[in-house]
Design a binder for these strands. Structure first.
Lengths: 238, 238
DNA sequence: GTACACAAATTTGTATACAATGATGTGCTC
DNA sequence: GAGCACATCATTGTATACAAATTTGTGTAC
């Protein structure tokens, strides 16, 4: 039958999904930055698979708007515009508070333990200076809440929005403001623990508004990095 | 080998996108029903392209949850469960009223004309007995409103939800209730014309609640059709 | 020295070949 | 005749080969 072994000789998940997951993780953790070109041959060699697999993975990421595929040009890590950044956080403000309320009404003990660990891990990552990992875990916290809400459709949307948020934070995060989500997440956890849906809804709302306002979304060209793209656009004046 | 597409001297859009669009349309119009197997070789021959293209198109539809890909088994038109059906309409009730309000605040004269034509076409299709085409146009009406709202992120979600709604209607539509959306759509159009966001929001809300309640979502096995799948599952008792 | 034009090299787009997995059919055992 | 084992077939999964397009490099004209 099917025993859940990590390095199984018989992959239950397709190779394309594996590559897509790894790439997604790398983008979430800001190991590859927006604008980076993702050449098919390079990736094929890195992951030891053929371009067929890489292509499928890249298409998957493109559907999640994590990469942009330009015909005959290749795949690049997406660079959300200021407008897109606003859209994403507006959508999150619209969706996630309701999801949090739903989650508060359905939280089980195991869920609380998992969320608690997420917060711990996030804190540990921050303490060790790994901002990328902390950011990733911070996103996972929100995704976990969506999962607890037990609404796959909304959870899928939330997942997409959080993935794009990671790109937006990479591009527009205001350096001086600390990435201190510990308090907000802890308060949310407590609201979930007590089953207080209204509190969870409000906490999530203010948390997201905070995040949105912590971005520097004034008019400026996107910091297109790497290659000549960084040089064909005017400097940000930093 | 390419004599299928009439006028495509220089394809600006990739062949995979073309195939995906055609398949999506066919599903929206209920020309292929939920549960239908979409064999790669068959599709490759039909559209006159290689399996590579077909595969990319099917993956695209799978991302939109219009088809389900089972490893080593192939692609099948998705059969949303009752639970998924509820989820989809819950999500639509959550998202679309706000989108309609936004749209009312941004409607331009050209948009009104376009919506008017959609309603006309839908009515004409219904009169000629082409329920599939009418259903498709009905969905396009909602998508058009999302486009007018000028929020690409939300519009993308709405598009996905409407695509899935088409499958849900194919599976669970209550036969006796007429597919009479003309009044609701016309009322919405008028609200948009007068720029009354609150009215548009409320009209959209009640319209969606109506649609949801017009489905027969009582417990029953999914009508898996075609091939032996229809025989391995208990009959719907119809 | 700059700008344009052309050629080489790299990279993506598509088709096809082969391998692997699941489905089907046949024959043997009991 | 029922049930299982194995061979055969069909279909999907993956790799590779080739075509098309873009980018890079070089040479020449002015």
């Amino acid at each position: 039958m099917s025993e859940h072994v990590p390095n199984a000789p018989k992959p239950e998940t397709s190779q394309a999904e594996t590559v897509a997951s790894e790439l997604t993780l790398a983008i979430h953790q800001h190991r590859v930055l927006p604008g980076t070109k993702l050449g098919e041959d390079d990736l094929a060699e890195i992951y030891g698979v053929s371009r067929t697999i890489i292509r499928a993975a890249l298409q998957s990421l493109a559907h999640h708007q994590l990469v942009e595929i330009r015909r005959n040009r290749g795949a690049f890590v997406a660079q959300p515009s200021i407008r897109e950044a606003h859209e994403v956080f507006e959508a999150r403000v619209l969706l996630e508070p309701g999801v949090a309320r739903r989650a508060a009404e359905r939280t089980k003990p195991d869920d609380l333990a998992l969320l608690q660990r997420h917060i711990q891990d996030e804190h540990a990552a921050l303490a060790s200076g790994d901002r990328g990992a902390a950011l990733h875990l911070s996103g996972l916290f929100h995704i976990e809440i969506a999962r607890i809400a037990d609404h796959e459709t909304l959870a899928g949307f939330v997942e997409i929005l959080i993935a794009r948020s990671s790109l937006i934070i990479a591009l527009y995060w205001r350096r001086e403001s600390a990435l201190c989500e510990k308090h907000a997440h802890h308060a949310l956890l407590e609201a979930l623990r007590s089953g207080d849906g209204v509190a969870a809804e409000e906490l999530m709302h203010s948390h997201l508004v905070d995040l949105h306002s912590a971005l520097d979304l004034r008019e400026r060209p996107k910091p297109a990095r790497s290659l000549k793209e960084a040089l064909t656009a005017p400097d940000t004046g930093l």
